[in-house]
Design a binder for these strands. Structure first.
Lengths: 237, 237
DNA sequence: CAGTGGTCTAGACCACGAG
DNA sequence: TCGTGGTCTAGACCACTGG
């Protein structure tokens, strides 16, 4: 049990090799926690260059099926963690892709002291004066997202010149500001009174919330909470 | 504006190049929608092999910053989609990692006809007799997940021999069954009466729900709905 | 210390698809 | 058609880390 003649196919060789390796793991020819042959041996076995085998192994490691360490070799992961790639939804595109009319409304725009809870997340002093925005995004007139955002005007003074009633802060940021770090979280929350009014749902409705904080070299740029209309689902690409 | 002397560093060259390219996009030296030089030119410019430049470009394309097409070249994405990798949480590991005691309880196990709603998702005939399981996972005795699962015993007859009071179907499946396709979704839902009782929360509480369907070559294997305790957050790796 | 994975290179062939 | 990205190869050097 070792010969591994590559099946004929048009797929990239690295993918074919990766597929075969998955099968070997599934068939328990390679046992959990066990060390598998090193790249050089596998290259010989599969009749490929080491770089190609390396690519296949890195794919499997990326999927969480293998664990690789220098000198220690490659082992079959004991508890394969399932990984998935999700793309953070962009409202406008999502809505237009569904053939609906996109619209945006700025609900409020003011300067206000940063609440302690947000300040802690952004890792800056609370009480600092920041730009506070509330906005709703619609598809065919139905609310889809309610966005609440804090922006530091000290770091982004240019924001003052933007007409946020016409262009959402979101789009302006995406097109004009680079970030070096960001954190994202999803969780479920019951709609409070404001969420309910903005999204036109009952108070207490379960909402999928996205929280995102963004930094660049100069410090925290923005923090946003996006409440999604019930029925929104998040799915890997 | 084109010279790009690589800064000294210990990081892999491909990553350095990718970083520089990100900067060029951010600085709007490469404009949105615009075509950038081809791999051969970039290789010359950066003093690297084409394969290395290719690696950097593929990274950026993976991040959604670039769009690549054969013959048409590489362009800066117009609406950069933010992508993130999440790892599907494994209860046991998550709980043990937090230093809590993990426990599992099988609540119900019976054969029952598959409800139409689930059947549609699994793409098989409804009313078919399947194994239906309900289980709760605890951390230090506090409910963390309530799992409701359907398994096709026709495809997985071995499941009949497993003592599911001791080993969760989840773990048995992970270790013994390979799948070829799976779908995952996350969304928010208000706790119904059963969710509330199982998770020991109030009815109506907002819960993050994970739905997952899995297939192999023979057909649909299993469909599961996992309701998470409030407070659970999903974050990219 | 030395084995293993990480990465780079120069060259090559090929597939796709825009023009 | 033919320029562009996709991929592979053989060889090389290096960094890390287990023994």
């Amino acid at each position: 049990m070792e010969a591994a003649p590559l099946p004929p196919s048009t797929a990239p060789k690295a993918q074919l090799i990766a597929r075969q390796m998955r099968a070997r793991i599934a068939a328990q020819e390679w046992l959990q926690g066990e060390r598998i042959p090193d790249e050089a041996d596998l290259a010989l076995e599969y009749g490929a260059a080491r770089a190609t085998v390396n690519k296949a192994l890195q794919m499997l490691a990326g999927e969480g099926l293998l664990e690789r360490k220098r000198r220690a070799g490659t082992r079959v992961a004991v508890n394969p963690v399932r990984k998935a790639i999700i793309s953070i939804p962009i409202v406008r595109e999502q809505i237009e892709q569904e053939g609906m009319a996109f619209s945006y409304r700025l609900i409020a725009q003011k300067r206000a002291p940063l609440p302690p809870e947000i300040a802690r997340e952004m890792d800056i002093a609370s009480g600092r004066e920041m730009l506070h925005l509330r906005a709703v995004y619609y598809g065919d007139g139905i609310p889809r997202q309610f966005e609440e955002r804090w922006i530091d005007p000290a770091i982004l003074p240019q924001i003052g010149a933007v007409d946020l009633r016409r262009f959402s802060a979101n789009e302006w940021l995406v097109q004009n500001v680079t970030y070096t770090r960001s954190e994202i979280r999803f969780y479920a929350e019951n709609a409070d009174r404001r969420d309910a009014r903005m999204l036109n749902v009952q108070r207490g409705a379960a909402l999928l919330i996205l929280r995102r904080n963004t930094w660049n070299e100069e410090g925290a740029i923005t923090s946003v909470r996006i409440a999604h209309h019930p029925g929104f689902t998040l799915a890997p690409v």
